[in-house]
Nucleic acid binder design. Structure first.
Length: 864
RNA sequence: GCGGGAAUGGCGGAAUUGGCAAACGCGCGAGACUUAGGAUCUCGUGGGGUGACCCUUGGGGGUUCGAGUCCCCCUUCCCGCACCA
């Protein structure tokens, strides 16, 4: 049966041919063969961290998707850049190395080799001449170089700040890496600790990071997540003078300056610097105890908004500046409570219990006064009904702003405090500066020198890279100091400019550093004199399509945008934003099984029995559910296994056929044979039973006239071409494959009418999806060259319209019949034909109205 | 609690954006070919009645000649964020 479809006989051969012909090699300006008239297309995958467990089918979904797009774009005539590399530095690589007892260099090299093999196995056409590895010196040299650009611009600084410390990982972490007081990687508990750390001033770009989201073709949900993370709010800061010491004041931030007249107390966060100074002797013990308790509480406990509010009075009072000196309403008590965050605003708030839920709850708990200063609109419950009203309304009990609606009241209140020089309008952000140092080994060393006098100088450009020292013991130190501090010969160095002794910085950059500019390196990956050439950036930037999981909605995508904007300001890049269009591929989920008690059962313990599932060797019925793939459930699928059993083309088709690229969908092994059967049927369309290419498809065969069944196939082919074209618009590539299947079914039915021209055009259509079988058939048909470099076939309008079409005929909106009418028939003629078909439904009734939708249907509205 | 997304046959999913719901695939049923199994091919397959009738896109209302699609209310699930003053 040599003529059967046997993908293993030819898939690797074609992969080798593509490599030799370098068909995925993108051409840079100035290179031989570069055509300035050719349009460029830069499609980028979020490059992976090369984990020890290799690629699974979820990664592959995005990679196959971009490969199909890239291959299609090549066939459309674009100069396509589709690169791949490895995000190899960072905590996971180091943790894995520690677990396995191997050096991260060794494990990283092993893992990247495996990833690359897997990707090639799938037949993905990357430009491997641009492969990068963020942990290689010829890459991180430029990461260091770019870091110095930030440093020179004053955007990198050292500060003693309360940072997240993870005892398990023995390192500090960024805000973004800590979720509910636990590390994002590994889910270990974290605590706040004051430490001297490198920070990047991302807050200086908050406004632009927010504003420039507008012009991006990104999923709205990602934009919203970024907006929320940046967390801009407009309001005012207001100084409340302390009664005892007139020179001192407490500054609060509020988004509702219009409610100043309703502020009945102030609250400081337990970490606020003034707490120690203002508490009165009588209250000092209670305050101290409270602050200590708050410090020892876990972040999760503190963050739990549902629990009852706690707090303690400091004994001190402050003056509300909107009231006159003698007004008793102006003297407000100062409390300490942990519902006020030290990290937001000024770490102190004015409490307006009448119009803020949290303050309301606190005031009730501690029996503090509540004053109404905003009257809700008619019909809305407010303080009069005993509920806190937080919406807009009309100012009352507020002296000079009484009667004003909230918007104007706010503006007037700000004007008033500014006049009295006791505050000003202010914008705050939730976004914090980015904690950029780690006390770990596997990262980029900081290109900075500490001199004897305590000053810091950058390592000169020509002395880069600062190489990571070879260390055999790179485990984090128990005391939290950096492992690099133990490489004493490395630490002790000289300042090349002065020849004076100097010490290297012993922290390393976080895992995100390398991914903050990698799309730029891909443009000019082998450049030894610069991170990338101006010409390459001018030509390739920005990325036209960036594809990856929604998991990176905030961290990577925010950091990358930040660095890119700094580069823009430094004149290094010509676009404000790095990624014009962002697309999130959906998650590939898996089936899992739970028993009667709701416990999940590993999938190798499960046996299908008809339409039910049983625990292997028992009668326990199990319920099939959909979950994330997880090692513990043994439902992680490796592409290698699928390819070994079915071939790469089947694997690719199944990945794309599962559903729209953006949707989450379960991996269902039962569906895979359907895709393989399609390829087998496709194969049979091209060969006779003896295994020879059908004579009418072979080179030199005479084309059949486009009539009868051949015309039918021609029409079917053009429809498939059109549907494929459409499917690329929304990346619903599953519908393209459905169109291929329909065409192949037609050919199977009308075998004798199939022509060489049709056979050849169909291969050009299918090639981006199932490139191996397309090449094999292409060459067996006697075509020269590669189908991967042939042109996309065109749909001709005249083949897309039928002369006679079937329309639906409705009576009162219900389908009652069909009729075939000429496409160009006039409405009255269509109506007359329709009337005959549904005569039985119309008899004895009065036709009130007739709706004729050309080419679609006729609807008779009847009475009686 | 707030924000975003979703809900269509036994399953994954289609539906020209207001115009014949269920394309395509899986699964299932019947048949053909086979000594037999497998593979392949053909036909069927939303539900109920089983004649030509009714029902059906999570539920309930509405707009319309016509609603999976638009509007209002509700339920469930997934993903973010979560005392941000």
């Amino acid at each position: 049966m040599t003529h059967a479809y046997l993908p293993s006989f030819f898939e690797t051969t074609w992969q080798e041919r593509w490599r030799q012909a370098q068909i995925f090699r993108a051409k840079n300006p100035g290179e031989p063969g570069f055509d300035p008239a050719q349009k460029k297309y830069y499609v980028l995958d979020m490059f992976p961290y090369p984990s020890g467990s290799g690629l699974h089918v979820g990664h592959a979904l995005g990679y196959v998707g971009t490969d199909v797009i890239a291959r299609r774009k090549i066939m459309e005539g674009f100069n396509v850049l589709h690169p791949m590399g490895w995000d190899a530095f960072g905590l996971p690589a180091e943790q894995y190395a520690i677990q396995t007892g191997k050096h991260p260099r060794a494990t990283t090299d092993e893992n990247t080799k495996n990833f690359k093999r897997q990707l090639e196995n799938i037949g993905i056409g990357y430009d491997w001449s641009r492969e990068i590895d963020t942990s290689h010196a010829d890459y991180y040299r430029w990461t260091q170089w770019l870091f110095l650009k930030l440093y020179e611009r004053g955007l990198a600084y050292q500060a003693e700040v309360a940072v997240w410390w993870c005892e398990e990982l023995k390192t500090v972490l960024a805000n973004e890496e800590v979720i509910n007081g636990r590390s994002e990687r590994g889910n270990h508990p974290c605590v706040r600790r004051p430490l001297k750390q490198w920070m990047l001033k991302i807050t200086a770009y908050a406004e632009r990071l927010l504003a420039d989201l507008e012009g991006l073709d990104w999923p709205e949900s990602i934009k919203i997540q970024q907006r929320e993370w940046i967390g801009r709010s407009e309001g005012a800061e207001v100084h409340f003078r302390l009664g005892a010491q007139p020179a001192e004041s407490i500054t609060v931030f509020t988004t509702r300056p219009d409610t100043l007249w309703g502020a009945t107390f102030l609250v400081l966060s337990p970490e606020h610097a003034l707490v120690k100074r203002i508490r009165t002797p009588e209250c000092s013990k209670a305050v101290e105890a409270y602050v200590a308790a708050a410090a020892s509480k876990s972040e999760i406990d503190r963050a739990d908004a549902s629990k009852e509010k706690t707090g303690v009075f400091t004994g001190a009072f402050a003056r509300n500046p909107v009231f006159d000196a003698g007004d008793p309403r102006g003297l407000v008590p100062v409390w300490v409570a942990d519902y006020v965050l030290s990290t937001y605003g000024t770490g102190a708030i004015m409490s307006v219990p009448g119009h803020d839920e949290r303050d309301f709850e606190f005031a009730r708990r501690f029996d503090l006064p509540v004053r109404e200063v905003v009257k809700p609109p008619k019909g809305v419950k407010g303080l009069a009904e005993g509920v806190c009203y937080t919406g807009d309304g009309t100012a009352v009990n507020s002296g000079p702003i009484d009667g004003l609606p909230t918007r104007e009241a706010t503006a007037r209140a700000i004007a008033l405090i500014e006049e009295r020089k006791t505050g000003r309008s202010r914008v705050t952000y939730k976004l914090r500066d980015w904690l950029f140092s780690r006390q770990r080994y596997w990262g980029e060393p900081f290109p900075l020198l500490h001199l004897a006098d305590g000053s810091i100088v950058p390592v000169p450009e020509d002395a880069l890279p600062v190489l990571l020292p070879e260390m055999t013991d790179f485990k984090p130190s128990a005391d939290g100091s950096a492992p690099l501090a133990r490489a004493q010969e490395w630490v002790r160095t000289i300042d090349p400019r002065t020849q004076q002794p100097a010490r290297r910085d012993t922290d390393t950059m976080p895992g995100w550093a390398g991914s903050c500019w990698y799309w730029l390196r891909f443009m000019d990956a082998r450049n030894e004199r610069a991170p990338f050439s101006k010409a390459a950036e001018q030509y390739w930037g920005p990325v036209d399509l960036y594809v990856g999981g929604a998991a990176h909605a905030v961290m990577h995508l925010l950091y990358a945008r930040f660095w890119h904007k700094v580069f823009f300001d430094a004149g290094l890049v010509h676009t404000k934003e790095p990624f014009q269009r962002l697309f999130n591929q959906g998650m590939v989920t898996a089936f899992a099984y739970e028993d009667a008690t709701g416990r999940l059962v590993a999938s190798d313990e499960v046996e299908p029995a008809g339409d039910r599932y049983l625990r292997r060797g028992s009668e326990d019925p199990l319920k099939q559910i959909v979950t994330k793939m997880a090692k513990s459930l043994k439902n992680v699928v490796n592409p290698d296994d699928i390819i070994a059993a079915n071939g790469a083309d089947t694997f690719r088709l199944y990945e794309m056929f599962m559903g729209p690229l953006a949707d989450s969908k379960p991996w269902n092994p039962r569906d895979i044979p359907g895709c393989k059967r399609f390829l087998e049927r496709l194969w049979r369309c091209y060969f006779d039973p003896a295994g020879e290419v059908r004579p009418e498809l072979a080179r030199g065969a005479t084309e059949k006239p486009l009539e009868g069944d051949t015309a039918l196939l021609e029409r079917s082919l053009h429809k498939a071409i059109q549907r494929t074209h459409d499917s690329f618009q929304d990346l619903n590539l599953n519908t393209a494959i459905a169109a291929f299947m329909t065409f192949v079914n037609d050919v199977t039915r009308l075998q004798a009418a199939f022509t060489r021209s049709q056979a050849e055009r169909f291969l050009r259509l299918v090639a981006p999806f199932a490139p191996h079988v397309a090449e094999e058939l292409w060459s067996r048909m006697g075509q020269t060259g590669l189908v991967a470099q042939a042109a996309v076939p065109a749909a001709e309008p005249r083949w897309l319209v039928e002369d006679e079409i079937e329309i639906g005929i409705q009576v009162n909106g219900k389908l009652r019949g069909n009729a075939r009418v000429p496409r160009v028939a006039a409405a009255p003629a269509v109506e007359a034909a329709a009337r005959q078909v549904v005569a039985a439904h119309l008899s004895g009734k009065e036709v009130v109205k007739v709706v004729v939708v050309p080419g679609k249907l006729v609807n008779f509205v009847v009475k009686g």
